[in-house]
Write a protein that binds this DNA or RNA. Sequence first.
DNA 1: CCAGCTAGAGTGAGCGCTAACAATTTCCAA
DNA 2: TTGGAAATTGTTAGCGCTCACTCTAGCTGG
Lengths: 337, 337
Amino acid sequence: MSVRSRGPNMYDVAKLAQVSHQTVSRVVNNHPNTREETRKRVLDAMEQLGYRPNQAARALASSRSRIIGILVSDADFFGPAGMTRAIESVAQSINHFAVSCSIDPDSEGSVLDGIDHLTGLGVDGVVMITPRTDAVTLARAQLGNIPIVTVDSMYRVDELSVSIDNFQGGQTATEHLIDLGHRNILHISGPSSWFEATARASGYAAAMRTHRLTPRIIEGDWTPEAGYEIGVTLDLDAYGTTAIFAGNDDLALGLLHAFADRGIEVPADVSIIGYDDIPHAAYWNPPLTTMRQDFAELGERALTLLIDAIEGRKMPAPETIVPELVERSSTAAPSAE
Amino acid sequence: MSVRSRGPNMYDVAKLAQVSHQTVSRVVNNHPNTREETRKRVLDAMEQLGYRPNQAARALASSRSRIIGILVSDADFFGPAGMTRAIESVAQSINHFAVSCSIDPDSEGSVLDGIDHLTGLGVDGVVMITPRTDAVTLARAQLGNIPIVTVDSMYRVDELSVSIDNFQGGQTATEHLIDLGHRNILHISGPSSWFEATARASGYAAAMRTHRLTPRIIEGDWTPEAGYEIGVTLDLDAYGTTAIFAGNDDLALGLLHAFADRGIEVPADVSIIGYDDIPHAAYWNPPLTTMRQDFAELGERALTLLIDAIEGRKMPAPETIVPELVERSSTAAPSAE
DNA sequence: CCAGCTAGAGTGAGCGCTAACAATTTCCAA
DNA sequence: TTGGAAATTGTTAGCGCTCACTCTAGCTGG
């Protein structure tokens, strides 16, 4: 008989502490106006009984589940995965619960399923980690007045959005190369359907123009495959290219691989800088110079924003998060020709 | 005023369908003994009203939350991350919810916090993805009669465990090398505190002995750093080593890097096989031969087992999952000396 | 023709909590 | 003193659902 023995409830605690259940509720929820002595008595009783408030009852009575949903696409990628875990961890620390749900933003059905799943649970709010605006629009329509915070979009059409400043990141990466003395710098971007890709590319272009240099961009996708393909066929001499800014580390990896095949040396023949600082990047050959982003911070801000929205507060939108240059040996001054 | 307008409830549906709320409940839960016609009427009413059952009320009344917790350590690693997402996805497909929670199995406090978090939510069951037995023991003690399924442990101390056959995987990897003609094969294992590491090592040793070869093992940890350190100092000539079986792809990456530094060519001078088939492995230099594991299948089986346990069924423990060899160019026949 | 079934549907009592309000106590100024 | 505001605690009524019942009608067989 696995009768899940129901644990002690509020009334048990109340009886032991000689107060009403409501007082117990007040203590549990940190309401003001409880005498310190009573409070202590209740706390002791809770401890003694090993009382755990029942979330279901709480949710039912208050229509607040304390559960927030995370809709994440491309959960295999470094960025989304990192953000997801950051949010989960922050949620735990503020006594909320996170349920994450992978979606394919290209499939409307998949997005709807995910939203259905989350609303079925009764989430209080949703964090969306996806580059696709249409998925966000769809979600917003479906979710009614359940607040959404989007993450990592540069298009702040609404205040509820937290982003990493990919423009700035692209600029910093490019300037690093320029500072080293490079003039002919190529950018291999992610797919232009991604916010991040276009933002980084714009940052790159801006930095180039500031220094009166001509930006040149090849669009790839985020995969090492794409980097490899491009790297294999790329004619560095055509524009005297001495440095490449890859839209992410995976692209950079593909390039590295292709150049190794072709006997092109990095950084002697060409410098490469990536973006993301995925865990392996330090162990490639050569170790990759790249841009690091603080996902923990991102998660924290996203959740703060969301909770504020849920509770009806409206905080000023926090600033964007600026990525940081991690210098390794895949970039160097161009060799004198 | 963002008064979360409560949606329609069972009574609304009941009224519209001209039945009692209990009949609606029966339809929602697929209970038998409802006339087809009534059933349809209720379904229509639900559709018309856009009725969504309230999980909190359900959980409160039935003391079943339909939420399962995932306690996962080393969530940054490829394996655990893959399993976690597989479980989340399966949970969604069977109308359950998954809440994952990262823990540090070395810290008792962290494990307790995680368990606290999950029990606080009222999870019906827990999947633990961690190599540490003591963490599992701790969890089992804390969780009382909430069922736990452990994943990826070879120590099936209880029936509720699903595992990838790391022993078999180690054996297959080693045999691939032997088949290619290697005789002096070194194994660089993961930390011996991990089930997976020792299981793979045992598989390796068994394969070696079967072929009357002498196993030699160096213990590392799972990181590229460790692989690099070992690779830098390793004296291949000492035992005439022509092939290395790395405990995972990260170790293999470190080795690759170290050998590149030393001018040792792979696979010409030494063959290397990894384990995991992380997404990048195909794009390293050279592309890594490695062992792939089916996490989706693993997640599915783990959840099936857990649900059975929750519902008091006892199914026969499903077989282990056998990893599959992915052959790329980091392994080749030994060059004739 | 009626006892005895059974499929199908209904009734009422909670599950454990919060929210609104009511009641009581405390404390201080008039 | 004493009135009354402020602080503290208690009371009551659900939240939306499931569970354990009861009730009804139709159908069987003796």
